[in-house]
Amino acid sequence: MGDFTAEEMTAIWLSVKVACWATAVSLVPGILVAWLLARRSFPGRILLDAFVHLPLVLPPVVTGYLLLLLFGRNGPIGRMLADIGIVLSFNWTGAVLACSVMAFPLLVRAIRLSMEAVDTKLEDAAAGLGAPPWAVFLTVTLPLSLPGILSGAILCFAKALGEFGATITFVAAIPGVTQTLPAAIYGLTQVPGGDAAALRLTLVAALIAIMAVTASELLARRVRRQVEGRDA
């Protein structure tokens, strides 16, 4: 199989970097939105739910194109961000945005499910002991939904690692800048003699994904033991 070329290594690291950032920036908003959907009733709740799930049902290309329209150099948000020195289009940070948006529904779903499973009677008990709503969230709801938050984060990471359509539409696949692992694999399958390299990168992608999922499962098991109070 031979060694990886510098370009392949760059694509691998870029993908890992983008997936890590996408997970990091999505986590807090993901927890917040999941909590709103799981515990609050407000006008527009159904709309928020639908909006969050949109990237899951839209073709990724469409999501990427919408991002380009909004966050591109001439997009309304893109121009505002450019004024304060943040450029997303054709930049790796744009890949982070595209991956975050695409992975967000999975993250929210996992967290929301585990929050809905937290017994509201425990939250009432906490309030009865003097805990204001923010403290009930931090000391009861959040720790008890930690297993779901963890698996949501890993799902988000894995999805971000494999995201292709929205990313390539929004930021293209510039080698060394925005060419992530899936984009590099796709590129290699389009040129003669690229098969061996494509296969190498495919194995890397599979390896990273398996490691992430295994690590999350082990971690989630430990956390679940901790949360449910079984002695580890």
């Binding site: 017994d119 009677k121 425990l122 009432d124 008990a125 906490a126 000391t139 009861v140 720790p143 008890l144 901790q226 949360v227 449910e228 109070g229």
Partner: peptide, 8 residues
């Protein structure tokens, strides 16, 4: 009726 202790 159920103690509702915090399991964590």
């Amino acid at each position: 009726q159920e103690a509702r202790l915090f399991p964590h």
